[in-house]
Design a protein around this nucleic acid. Structure first.
Lengths: 344, 344
DNA sequence: ACCTCGACGTTATACGTAACACTTCGGCAG
DNA sequence: CTGCCGAAGTGTTACGTATAACGTCGAGGT
């Protein structure tokens, strides 16, 4: 069929399709674009579509982007994909994006230790919008400066700058955890908090203190650690070794820290949950890999990604973005039990 | 929000920079492109650079790609980012890519349950090459059909089609594990294998059987399970409940399965490592979150990504890709101990 | 005085697409 | 018959960039 003389089978263009179908390039664009329903007769359209399939035509995205000024690509800024939570957020965002012929490209956020490269230096020109997660305030400013549509995930809704927000009801999750433990008779708490300074963790601390304050007779100590098992273990171990009344429950900002707390307990000869209750946050796969399994708060990570992408698409379409918070759910497992002091 | 679009300062183009600097657009391209060192006098170049900074000029990537026919973007095909190993592969690949002004876009591989969308239907036009990991054979064919430069990670090096390979010395890792356990006196083994049918797991089984065969008096049973803790636990529990001589060591294809094996042991009242040794593979964060910590094989995941990207860049430059395998390392921790039968 | 040549720029062009503006043509009301 | 309309296409243009091809000008060789 092809009378092409080129030795290498060059990628066919819309003009090649036009030639094969006996129409003009404009008509090919009209047909394959899918818009302009009535502009081309069905018989012609059919011929064009067949030619396109025949030649294996794929539109050149670069040319399309250049023409339209849009790329159908969003940037997702996350701290690290090795954190399962963010990997799931990505999965959710990418899945919804794919349904709308959108792509998602990733950039690890500058969380202090991140790469110094400006994500927009190379990417900004090719982006339609940005979805950013758990940013520190300064990094956030750089995002606003890019004057691209912006959706913030799990971030301070009162933050400056025009941005849609998709938030988890973190405070409610922490409240549920606290109520659960208070109901089990616990009164002396250790809060194993993340050393990361973002809204999502600040909210945890606030909600915990609020809920404990309401209980009246509860006390809490706070120690902070980076988000990894070893650091969590060390911090918990030191805190538990302090003289005086030992806490009966450790509330962790994260399942990873909770895993550290469990290891600390075991090293000190404390049995979980009989002598020490431990709670996590996130409900990662890790939560059910441990023994005992972690009582934790399930966060709908994929949904966060989906809703984030949804919001971005809405903004790009000029529609208002849905703003509601996503519900979270306490999952009670084996790492929490009635306080030993209450039973005594 | 702002609904005004036109009065907003449009992104400056190279022509705007040219006007500001009092030169032609071509000169701007010459200066900012960085190639053609001697073509423009330093004083003019300086003026251009200043104008570019002044206006906040960013080259339009779509236009550049259209002109050059290349996108400086690679596709990384991985089964799932929620698996920490692949998240780390991505991190390695993305880091090296960034150093070369390359981007990496992800696509979850069609591993049977994956999305039905053809990654190339939307992406192929905008890609310079593909790095693919742990593919099933049929999915692999689709990749070859795309006639893009292809690098395979951790895949059968004897596979068909022209592709560079970056492989881990999986067989050596499994050999080390086996020798370690044999040295501890173990003779009855259970192989908790992945249900996924890829080269990387086939090699594990082969190496395990080879090493045990060399020992002469060792026996092994194999059970397979999907790569998640629950499935691993179930499979291990069933296998351990079988009447007859119980294995004294479980060799797992993966840390995740090993976590399942540990849970199974605990459910059956078997103490790890005293009554049952368990080994993993990958050295994920999970390995040190468990108690006892897992004896496992450390895989340089980031290096796999880096070397993969390196190989792709080499191919694109017409250089030969470095082909050597990456070494792995046995990490002995608390989940393995001398066989109880040997001590008896 | 003539030619050459290198240094420094500029002009022009093509990449592949989407969509605006235009043509062509048969039908149909006035 | 004229004028108008809608249907079905086509011609053309612009998006922003990189680079091939083409000036221009003064220095240096012969």
């Amino acid at each position: 069929m092809t009378s092409a003389q080129q030795p290498v089978p060059a990628r066919p263009t819309s003009r090649d399709v036009a030639r094969a179908a006996g129409v003009s390039q404009a008509t090919v664009s009209l047909v394959l674009g899918g818009k302009w329903p009535g502009r081309v007769s069905e018989v012609t359209a059919q011929r064009v579509r067949e030619a396109a399939v025949e030649l294996g035509y794929r539109p050149n995205l670069a040319a399309r982007s250049l023409r339209l000024g849009r790329t159908r690509t969003a940037l997702l800024v996350v701290p690290a994909l090795t954190n399962e939570f963010f990997a799931r957020v990505y999965a959710g965002a990418a899945a919804l994006a794919a349904e709308h012929d959108f792509g998602v490209v990733l950039y690890p956020s500058p969380d202090g230790t991140g790469p110094a490269r400006d994500p927009f230096a190379s990417a900004r020109a090719a982006l339609d919008g940005v979805i950013a997660s758990s940013m520190a305030a300064d990094a956030l400013d750089a995002l606003h400066g890019a004057d691209l549509p912006l959706v913030m995930l799990d971030s301070d809704p009162s933050g400056t700058g025009p941005a849609a927000h998709v938030n988890l009801d973190i405070a409610d999750g922490m409240r549920q955890v606290t109520d659960h433990l208070l109901g089990l008779g616990h009164r002396r708490f250790l809060h194993l908090a993340s050393a990361v300074d973002t809204w999502t963790f600040a909210v945890r601390a606030e909600a915990l203190h609020d809920a404990l304050g309401a209980a009246g007779d509860a006390t809490v100590r706070t120690v902070r650690a980076p988000l990894d098992v070893g650091a969590g273990r060390e911090a918990a171990e030191q805190a538990l070794a302090v003289a005086g009344e030992r806490p009966t429950a450790i509330v962790c900002d994260d399942d990873i820290l909770a895993a550290g707390a469990c290891k600390a307990a075991r090293r000190l000869g404390l049995r979980v949950p009989d002598e020490l209750s431990v709670t996590g946050f996130d409900d990662l796969a890790l939560a059910t890999a441990l023994e005992p399994e972690l009582t934790t708060v399930r966060l709908p990570a994929e949904q966060v990604g989906e809703r984030g992408m949804e919001a971005l698409l809405a903004v790009l379409d000029g529609r208002p973005a849905e703003q509601g918070g996503l519900p979270v759910e306490l999952v009670v497992r084996g790492s929490t039990a009635p306080s030993p002091t209450a039973r005594a």
